[in-house]
Write a protein that binds this DNA or RNA. Structure first.
Length: 874
RNA sequence: GGGCGAUUAGCUCAGCUGGUUAGAGCACCUCGUUUACACCGAGGGGGUCGUAGGUUCGAAUCCUACAUCGCCCACCA
């Protein structure tokens, strides 16, 4: 006999429970060769971050996976960490400094980095606390950070290996350059913005060309036309002097397939150094390159009077000048996709720069005597099923992206990150690529200078699954926990991260980083818009929701009603609804605890001894099917389904029926507690806090988190009793329904006469709950008997129930009620007979289905008979 | 331009390999302090499963076209 509080107040318990888990060491799995391992690498939140809905979703889903596997007896490791997020973090700190009027250059590299480290340390602690708030059962003893010594070592090691394998090279190539960040951007770090711009038509010697960027004329070295274009056939290969604003300049005419004959004049000006498409044309045609824009987005010295202007200023000036000089033919509006930096939204300036690249197309990985490129290997492991993506539809997206991947530019001109492990000799031309700072150059000189650039953040996070386990050392962790089980994250970083991990891991480890990829959708507002902090009325702060409704409720709202890869709309009522459910679990337990003794709690359930009633058998059977279904759903990543089934069982079956029937002398403490313990286990991965608090009241030795997942037990299936119980449910529901239709006050007790046929004995046993739940004063149960006057009649299976409501009975109302029922049944009967009369159906459909339909038809006919007979008497 | 997805009750969504008289939660209506829970209980209304064809004995589920919405990728001067 215990009494717990009337309502569950999450706030009171959550922090204590988390501390208890963490201090107990359950989050830290042991390396046990007898056990299978299961690893999840936590997608490292940015070091700048505070918890947002994306993190919260990821943490909820991953925690469900990990708790489930842990309860299944696997050695489950969930490895947490943070990402230094080079550009994002540096921008953040620069912004903070700018408020004080300081730029990073004022401080210099070292002092600036100190500022960054200080900032990062603060925000890392914030995010650590917030991850705990979500109930994440991750192993904090193994926490990693991309700039840890170990991980940095892994980064340098990989760099050196790839360099030695000729997979990393330095080249002059066109890159996306963000003048604000003063750094290159990878292709997928560029966003596009629709914008209407001016398209200028320019008289260009013998040609007429169009451009949205007249300032690039200063860097033109060619005109390209389509080789099939007859208009320019004669001109291909020739050189022309073109009169321009700075005097005549020379171009040559080349033929290239990339030029569209239909568009404009069919001739384009080529600026190899400042356009991706033009760069490629130049490469194919061996064109000279003329760079006219520098890295701050200003015109270079070779631009005469325009030197020093920004590109926009220059554009304005040059247009004016061209107009004066008669080169401008026309100007029109043009819908253009402007490339902008994904971090700061500054317009990207394509320019040629000397950068480090990873060669993705170069044959490198040797297998069975055949060499495959990084790309080929990364495609192969998904194609052959070594990695399975959930949902499957993302396979296509992945292949498409991978197949179109260009060499990956990995150098960034920012200070915060892993500095490139290359030392240039100031005395000779030699490059020294090494994992540690070399003492001297191969030539003997000590005059070495390390490359100023840092590596792309995704370079280091690409190593995440194995660098966090100790690689390049051959650690026991690495051997036991790698490859990891599932990589779970939002679909928006499939390319950024997952693709990179697959590339880097298949290269370094010769194995996949993970067996499964589970992609969750994005969280949206009720209207399907992106959650953004700029609209606080629809934007939900997870921490605020935890404060109000508890972590468990929030977790459920991420999981139930969503499917992998599809966006999920979230709003407060939803979370409140799950808070109600959490409270329901609490109260089902509260009821149980109030009605059992310590002795009952200590008694181990023995089916032979403790099963008493049909209700016991019914709930035990339902529980078995639940265990089976939920386990199956968990194995197949159907967390929403699993959660919903738990929800329905708890609320509708356990609370609404079993507990209700149990009230009074029918209560069977041992079975009730057995069922309760099992449902708490099944619910635990979803709502860890409330279930653990409740568990602590059950006098168990172990914590719930350490318990084993329930197993399906076919000895606890009692299908006959389930059928009988369902009849009882039906009778009670129908009586309640009639009471409501006749507006019989709930307080008023009525009489009932039941002719129960073969169910007589069963219903006699259940007379007490039947009276209580249908609010009946007196019930006469007989096998059969005469029809009763002035009574409402209900039929359930072949049981006849009479409710003598006397003066309340309204013959017309009864007629219409019965007629409606009759119509339903007749329609149903019609469709069943039509099916069964159809020879093709009988010939083709499975036997069980046909048998079942026949049975249903017989039942329907029986009910119709009863109703007709009743109608005849009215 | 290429690809992917969505369209089921007023709202948010389930419905896994085709066989349910189409489900849930919220909202709505009626009633209700009964040995847990008003963060509750009981009862109820509400859907020709986007449209049009097709495959099949049988389609919300498979195929085709169309419509509407959304996302991703590419990009042209």
């Amino acid at each position: 006999m215990k009494e717990i509080e009337k309502a569950y107040e999450a706030k009171k318990y959550e922090d204590d429970i988390y501390e208890k888990w963490e201090n107990s060491g359950v989050f830290t799995p042991k390396i046990d060769e007898k056990k299978e391992s299961f690893t999840v690498s936590m997608p490292p939140p940015n070091a700048t971050g505070t918890l947002h809905l994306g993190h919260a979703t990821m943490l909820a889903i991953e925690d469900i996976m990990v708790r489930y596997k842990r309860m299944q007896g696997l050695s489950a490791l969930w490895l947490p960490g943070t990402d230094h997020a080079g550009i994002a973090t540096q921008n953040r700190v620069e912004k903070n400094l700018l408020e004080k009027g300081i730029t990073r250059h004022d401080l210099g590299r070292e002092k600036f980095l100190d500022e960054v480290y200080k900032f990062v340390e603060g925000s890392r602690n914030t995010i650590r606390k917030q991850i705990r708030k979500m109930g994440a059962s991750c192993d904090w003893t193994r926490e990693r950070y991309t700039l840890d010594e170990g991980l940095s070592k892994a980064v340098r090691e990989i760099f050196v290996r790839m360099y030695n394998d000729d997979l990393i090279y330095r080249g002059n190539r066109i890159v996306n350059w963000c003048p604000r960040c003063s750094s290159t951007l990878a292709d997928d770090e560029v966003d596009y913005k629709d914008k209407i711009e001016k398209l200028y038509w320019i008289k260009y010697g013998p040609f007429s060309v169009a451009t949205t960027r007249p300032e690039t004329i200063l860097g033109d070295t060619a005109v390209a036309v389509n080789p099939k274009d007859k208009r320019y056939k004669e001109m291909i290969g020739k050189k022309y002097m073109i009169p321009g604003v700075l005097g005549d300049f020379e171009i040559q005419v080349v033929a290239d397939e990339a030029v569209d004959i239909e568009f404009g004049t069919g001739a384009i000006k080529v600026t190899p150094a400042h356009s991706f498409a033009d760069f490629e044309i130049a490469q194919r045609n061996n064109l000279p390159m003329k760079s006219v824009i520098d890295e701050s987005g200003k015109m270079k010295e070779n631009c005469g009077k325009y030197a020093g202007m920004t590109t926009l200023e220059c554009r304005e000036e040059i247009v004016k000048d061209m107009e004066k000089m008669g080169f401008l033919e026309k100007v029109e509006d043009f819908n253009h996709n402007l490339s902008v930096c994904y971090r700061c939204k500054t317009t990207v300036e394509p320019l040629v720069s000397r950068q480090w690249f990873i060669a993705v197309d170069k044959p490198a990985i040797e297998e069975n005597g055949k060499k495959k490129s990084l790309k080929e290997k990364a495609i192969e492991v998904v194609k052959n099923g070594d990695i399975e993506i959930v949902p499957e539809k993302f396979n296509k997206t992945y292949f498409h992206w991978m197949e179109n991947l260009h060499d990956w530019c990995i150098s960034r001109q920012i200070w915060f990150g892993h500095q490139i492990p290359v030392w240039y000799c100031m005395d000779c031309e030699e490059l020294n690529v090494a994992t540690e700072t070399p003492e001297k150059c191969k030539c003997g000189s000590h005059n070495l200078k390390q490359d100023e650039d840092t590596l792309d953040t995704w370079f280091s996070s690409g190593l995440w699954t194995f660098s966090t386990l100790g690689w390049p050392e051959k650690t026991k962790d690495l051997e036991y926990f790698h490859p990891t089980g599932v990589l779970e994250t939002g679909y928006d970083i499939l390319f950024f991260w997952i693709a990179r991990m697959i590339i880097m891991t298949t290269y370094a480890m010769h194995e996949v980083p993970f067996k499964n990829v589970y992609l969750h959708g994005l969280i949206r507002t009720r209207d399907g818009k992106k959650m953004s902090k700029s609209s606080p009325e629809t934007c939900i702060d997870p921490l605020d929701m935890i404060e109000q409704y508890g972590t468990d409720a929030l977790r459920l709202s991420f999981v139930i009603g969503g499917t992998p890869g599809n966006d999920l709309r979230l709003y407060e009522e939803k979370i409140a609804g799950y808070r109600n459910f959490v409270n329901k679990i609490w109260n089902a337990s509260r009821f149980s605890l109030m009605n059992v003794s310590d002795e009952d709690l200590a008694t181990e359930f023995d089916p032979k001894k403790h099963i008493i009633s049909r209700a016991d058998k019914w709930i035990l059977t339902k529980l078995q099917y639940l265990i089976k279904d939920v386990t199956d759903d968990m194995e197949n990543f159907r967390y929403s389904e699993a959660g919903m089934k738990n929800y329905n069982f708890t609320w509708c079956e356990l609370c609404d029926w079993y507990v209700e029937i149990s009230k009074g002398k029918h209560l069977n403490p041992v079975v009730l507690i057995y069922v309760l313990k099992n449902i708490l286990k099944l619910l635990h991965p979803f709502v860890p806090f409330v279930t653990e608090v409740l568990w602590s009241n059950l006098n168990e030795k172990k914590m719930l988190i350490e318990e084993s997942w329930p197993k399906f037990n076919k000895d606890l299936l009692f299908d006959k009793e389930v059928e009988e119980m369902e009849i009882l449910h039906q009778i009670i529901s129908d009586i309640r329904s009639v009471r409501a239709q006749y507006s019989v006050e709930p307080a008023k007790k009525i009489m009932a006469v039941i002719y129960a046929g073969k169910y007589t004995k069963f219903l006699e046993e259940k007379i007490e709950p039947l009276k209580r739940m249908a609010r009946i004063e007196n019930i006469d149960i007989m096998e059969k008997g005469e029809k009763i006057e002035k009574a409402v009649c209900i039929f359930v299976s072949d049981i006849e129930i009479y409710l003598p409501l006397n003066e309340l009975v309204d013959t017309e109302k009864e007629k219409s009620r019965l007629n409606k029922e009759k119509e339903n049944l007749e329609n149903f009967k019609k469709s069943l007979s039509a099916k069964l009369d159809n020879k093709s159906f009988v010939g083709n459909a499975p036997k069980e289905l046909i048998e079942n339909e026949k049975k249903r038809l017989a039942e329907t006919e029986k009910s119709l008979e009863q109703i007709n007979s009743q109608l005849a008497d009215l």
